[in-house]
Write a protein that binds this DNA or RNA. Structure first.
Lengths: 151, 151
DNA sequence: CCAAATTTGTTTCATTTGTAACCATTGAAA
DNA sequence: TTTCAATGGTTACAAATGAAACAAATTTGG
């Protein structure tokens, strides 16, 4: 028999969203205050720093961003001279994106801030709680995979 | 010693955000297709259905929404005649919001769809995985609480 | 009692977002 | 080949968002 009401505070989609939103806003203060980056710009910086070189489509796949977000973030980082576009030899639709020296410097700085942020976040939890969140998130990711190339 | 790179796919803030975003988008299809609701409108409907009556400020606290979102969602639900505003006897700044019969009907329908959605989401996980996600989310919520009345 | 500060909620404006249309190029089919 | 569909990426437009200014009512502190 169906319950008549729904407790928003116990509804997993809501709880997940609120949690992610809070954590993400907290973290965004760091790259916003330090470098004036938006979230798509941070993800672009992060993706290229990690992988070295990617096309816009690959960036979108890696960081779960809509292609218009990628396009705009890339344009802005290029304007800052934090990345360069290199043509593909065989396919002129494609550009290989890579960080410049300045982009890489910003990336390295952000990496240590990001790691510190995550460490401090997890430090608030007990060992079992840390294990639980990681296991639970991984499990859901596994069952949703594929859903997030779409958008 | 600090790692030089950061793997976005393992970075908890990113993973949480992507997961929540995917789940939320999936769920939003339901209220969007069924009733043409936005997320703030859904949360408003849900909050009032659950609690019966609330002021705009209380709604914002319960559902973690910015006051401008609340204001707009309430205006739209009022336009649909899904809720009514009732003046407060002692404080004329306040209005007590409540669902109309039509609003309540929509709410009841949404409750069963929401419950089904959550059930199906959790059904993809093993019992331990379900326990893990719930425990992990609750733990983080507990350590972040208070952070989300702000915005 | 009165002025200043606070609270509640709305509105304005600039920014961010996403859908859809678009251009250029490439690949596939005839 | 020549066409037609698919792909990579940008742009234009409309909708959603949030910060800040605002009006109205209430509370607080002389």
């Amino acid at each position: 028999m169906e319950p008549e009401i729904l407790e928003l505070e116990r509804f997993l989609p809501y709880r997940l969203y609120r949690l992610a939103d809070t954590v993400s806003r907290e973290f965004s203060k760091i790259y916003k205050e330090r470098h004036g980056l938006t979230r798509p710009e941070w993800r672009t910086l992060s993706g290229l720093g990690q992988r070295g070189t990617m096309t816009a489509t690959e960036l979108g796949e890696q960081s779960a961003m809509h292609k218009t977000k990628v396009s705009r973030a890339v344009a802005e980082l290029e304007r800052r001279r934090w990345l360069t576009r290199n043509p593909d030899r065989n396919d002129r639709r494609i550009e290989h994106l890579a960080l410049t020296r300045a982009g890489l410097a910003a990336y390295r700085e952000m990496v240590s801030l990001a790691n510190a942020f995550e460490r401090e976040l997890l430090a608030r939890l007990s060992a079992e709680e840390r294990a639980a969140i990681v296991k639970g998130v991984a499990a859901l990711e596994g069952r949703l995979g594929g859903a997030w190339a779409k958008y």
